[in-house]
């Protein structure tokens, strides 16, 4: 028995698929080796025998039109989709409760952060009796102390002088 490579090459030789150089080598081998020659003949006969049974089909329309019709039929086929089920009570609750809880948490955090301060931010209201009285306020929320620092025109000479810086 010839090895697998030789057999494949013989088949390719019969089908005319070998390059020219190998085609000549295979022809030379067939003339030398009676087994190879017999195999070639057998394959050629088999091919000729089957050639008449290969029915040729012709499409009635163009190839593109034929496949587009198939594609359209596929698209119109009813799709077997599951019926949507009504959401459960828990799902409905969760749908509303989750954002509501998040919102409530945000409001609570906002109240904790700003609410306390807002409550103690009682709005210092200063009303000067005449022009030239400048005031600024300072709140120490921890101690609950409100400071109103006043500067008069008469004080400015002191306040503006060198080391009179009031603040630390």
């Amino acid at each position: 028995m010839k090895d697998q490579d030789i057999l494949l090459k013989v088949q390719a030789f019969v089908d005319g698929e070998l390059p020219e150089a190998e085609q000549a080598q295979m022809a030379a081998l067939a003339s030398r080796d009676p087994d190879v020659n017999a195999l070639i003949k057998e394959l050629k006969q088999t091919r000729q025998a089957l050639a008449g049974y290969d029915e040729k089909r012709e499409l009635p329309e163009s190839r593109e039109f034929y496949w587009s019709q198939i594609q359209r039929r596929i698209g119109t086929l009813p799709v077997d989709m599951p019926e949507p089920r009504p959401p459960s009570l828990m799902a409905t609750l969760a749908r509303w409760l989750v954002p509501a809880t998040c919102l409530a948490a945000l409001v609570a955090v906002g109240f904790m952060v700003f609410g306390g301060r807002q409550a103690s931010d009682d709005g210092v209201s200063w009303q000067a009796a005449y022009d030239g009285v400048n005031a600024f306020t300072y709140r120490d929320y921890d101690e609950g102390t409100t400071l109103l620092w006043l500067s008069y025109p008469a004080d400015n000479a002191v306040a503006d002088s060198g080391e009179a810086a009031t603040m630390n």
Binding site: S120, D122, G123, V124, S125, W126, Q127, A128, A129, Y130, V133, A135, E143, G144, T145, T146, L147, L148, W149, L150, S151, Y152, D155, V158, A159, A164, T166
Partner: peptide, 20 residues
Amino acid sequence: MVGKVTQKLEVNRLLVTGGN
């Protein structure tokens, strides 16, 4: 009269006015 300040003042809270 220098002016007047209005402020919420709860028990033990301080309202401090001051100047140079």
